[in-house]
């Protein structure tokens, strides 16, 4: 399947990536190439096959409902690009 610029732009918006016009064509071609590579998958009859999202047919272990985490804000915010008064800062969002 051929990936058009329009599709690339849409997916770029969903994934919050930005491409120049030149890159758009390049990424579209690359996506097309990958999708062609995976195309042969469509030959397989998978009717009735349960999708496998995990190699283990194991089930989820559960965690006791106990507070185990303390205040590590100083540690975590040391690696943050921009904080003030304990808050992470981003450019003003207008809702």
């Amino acid at each position: 399947m051929k990936i058009t610029d329009k599709v690339v732009k849409n997916i770029a918006e969903l994934t919050q990536l930005r491409f120049t016009e030149d890159e758009l064509a390049e990424i579209g071609a690359s996506m097309t190439e990958t999708l062609e590579l995976v195309e042969q998958m469509q030959q397989v009859d998978t009717a009735g096959v349960e999708p496998m999202s995990n190699p283990l047919d194991a089930t989820q272990p559960l965690r006791p409902d106990v507070v185990t985490e303390g205040d590590n804000r100083a540690i975590y915010q040391r690696i943050a690009p921009e904080t003030q008064d304990g808050l992470y800062l981003v450019p003003k969002v207008i809702e």
Binding site: V44, T46, V49, E50, P51, M52
Partner: peptide, 11 residues
Amino acid sequence: YYRQAQQIRRL
């Protein structure tokens, strides 16, 4: 794509 791939994975 995704679902088909997960089914093939089981096969």
